[in-house]
Design a protein around this nucleic acid. Structure first.
Lengths: 156, 156
DNA sequence: ACTATACATTAACCTAGATTAAGAAATGTA
DNA sequence: TACATTTCTTAATCTAGGTTAATGTATAGT
């Protein structure tokens, strides 16, 4: 069970990589993301201390996410097949539950609603990453997020 | 491990239900969905034979999805905490992987692209459910889906 | 402290998809 | 067969959010 010290900006996984690992964040902040056909970046998740970041695909298929460090970060690296032998079901169920909520939000909620949900759910991360990344995570442009926040202020 | 015979249209789980179960579809077709604040229905997943349908939340928290039968359906019902003791990690990972793809599609793909992805991934289900349900699953209105298909034909 | 680069905001304009409403097909049911 | 109900399509209109581009404001590196 290796440890790894990452400098801000370091990329530790790229789409296409085989035998990807599972990363337990000890300190710092990871993120996973894709880049689509038009070259646009879409953040899939943020991983602050205590979180587990991984591309949950079967061991043998290539991953489709980048993972990099948004701050200087320390991670514990676990081989994916090894992780399978210590089957900790609870965190997997939690992840599914979170993803379920995210899908439903993406399908049914407006930009403002999605932002306010994020605000309540991850107030910490809001402070730690640039707003354009929040926008990317929420599936909107930085300009749209800017507009949304301004309109909310006007109403109060 | 009970068995259950459902008639088309039967609802077996409602938002707020506690101690929800895990449903293994033996024959037929289930679906899970929410109804949002504006009364609009959003289909979260379809569960044809061989699939497992459940609201993957911790046992003790109330679920937030409806589950009903789109066809006459036979299911095997498993208690959730029991399912936890037979920790079958592989299907959970698969589900996460599918949800990951879905989130990324919702964030980055247009209506047409989402539809074509569905067509390729679940050609079977496309035949079995009304189009408005496909639209709901894809996060768009039936009208939008209709338009999308027409425009695609024009181009060919 | 100076410059460069990344980030945030604003505004004008545009477009995908929502909404509304009506009619046409299909499907179910007596 | 006829009638009702649900589903699908079309068209007109509207709007949230995307795009582009300019300006302002931090932040970082030397």
């Amino acid at each position: 069970m290796r440890r790894l010290n990452l400098k801000k900006g370091e990329i530790i996984q790229r789409p296409g990589d085989l035998n990807s690992k599972v990363y337990h964040v000890v300190r710092g902040l990871l993120r996973s993301y894709t880049i689509d056909a038009k070259g646009k970046e879409h953040i899939f998740m943020f991983g602050p201390e205590g979180w587990v970041v991984a591309d949950n695909s079967p061991v043998e298929v290539p991953v489709d996410l980048f993972i990099d460090a948004l701050e200087d970060t320390i991670v514990r690296v676990v081989e994916k097949d090894l992780a399978k032998e210590t089957p900790n079901v609870a965190p997997l169920m939690r992840r599914i539950s979170v993803l379920q909520k995210r899908v439903i939000l993406l399908m049914s909620a407006s930009a403002i609603e999605r932002y306010e949900h994020f605000e309540q759910t991850y107030p910490d991360i809001l402070q730690r990453v640039p707003q354009k990344m929040i926008a990317s995570y929420l599936g909107m442009t930085p300009e749209a997020l800017s507009k949304v926040k301004r309109n909310r202020l006007r109403k109060k």
